[in-house]
Write a protein that binds this DNA or RNA. Structure first.
Lengths: 166, 166
DNA sequence: GTACCCCTACTCGGATAGCGAGTGTCCGAGTCGGAATGG
DNA sequence: CCATTCCGACTCGGACACTCGCTATCCGAGTAGGGGTAC
């Protein structure tokens, strides 16, 4: 009774892209530091970072002073990009064509176009994707900064960042 | 890499509500017949029908000539109603408030309002729900009838229905 | 003949196993930086 | 003092267990209808 759950890795990924978005350009953060920032399991987070890397959202540098950084400007990365990178791009609704089964099955020839049920669900999903595509990581950063970053917390963050970037 | 899957029980439920929508008013179909109509596993389908019953979408009658029937006009039953009945009404995105954890945690006092990430995902989900709420079972029936019901199939269906209803 | 009662058959309802996808973890592949060394 | 080489430590990347929730099933609870029986 509680399906349709978005993987929590999506939440992690968006938060971390937000963090990477405020790292000075040219610098990166290793996976361990990113995990530390929100007290996330480092090994598992690494898996999700790989997915982001494969999707071209972040770039990975190896070596002693390596780490992850955004692959493109934060304004060009949308919540939809991140979601698809983590969850995959398959639609949530998958028609199994049960209308072609049973005593009153529709003839395959009559099923050239999608059944109205499938169409409705895919349309709804398009609306969902459109909404997510309209928000960028830069938007998230701006809003978060203005909403819940007082002077004190901003300094705490800067201090941590200075100790984390190489 | 393939999350966010809608339970296929939703697809079944919508199709079956469509079938129940064209049953003459005052008559019902037992779960076994409904399962037979699309060659679905009867026992498992029964579980979903229970969920529809609890949600007030269909009413269940016991006894020798009992069965399920729509609890309200097909125009008043939306795809969203059915989806929520099967999947539950919890939102797909669930914020775990990781912003309140780690070396730069936000103070609980600063988290009165939802973080912008959660807000964005819930807004997207609202768009999704709105799209599903705009389609009724009656709409599905109308479209399906006009798209893929030629005279021959319509007769086949009527014959099955006459043998199925009590 | 009729009214009542019981019984059977059929229905829904909730409690019970099985399996697959996300969740979590680990160790190996790859790379950069620096230290040691020889010129 | 400087260039070169080698070594080491740190990083990402993919392969391996575990847990929870959807999938699937069964048997018990409940009801309506019909047949039998007594009046």
């Amino acid at each position: 009774m509680s399906a349709m759950r978005i993987a929590e890795g999506v939440e992690w990924a968006v938060h971390l892209c937000g963090v990477l978005g405020v790292v000075p350009a040219g610098f990166g953060l290793p996976a361990g530091r990113l995990a530390e920032f929100h007290e996330l399991p480092p090994a598992y987070l690494a898996k999700h970072l790989q997915a982001l890397s494969r999707a071209g959202i972040v770039t990975a540098n190896r070596g002693v002073s390596g780490g992850y950084r955004l692959a493109k400007p934060a304004t060009k990365i949308t919540l939809l990009d991140i979601t698809l990178a983590i969850e995959g791009s398959e639609p949530a609704f998958r028609c199994t064509e049960i209308r072609q089964r049973g005593p009153c099955a529709a003839a395959p020839a009559a099923c050239k176009q999608r059944c109205p049920i499938t169409k409705a669900f895919l349309d709804a999903e398009t609306q969902w994707r459109k909404a997510l595509a309209s928000i960028s990581v830069a938007d998230i950063i701006t809003t978060a900064a203005s909403e819940s970053f007082d002077k004190e917390r901003r300094r705490t963050f800067q201090a941590w960042l200075n100790g984390a970037v190489k």
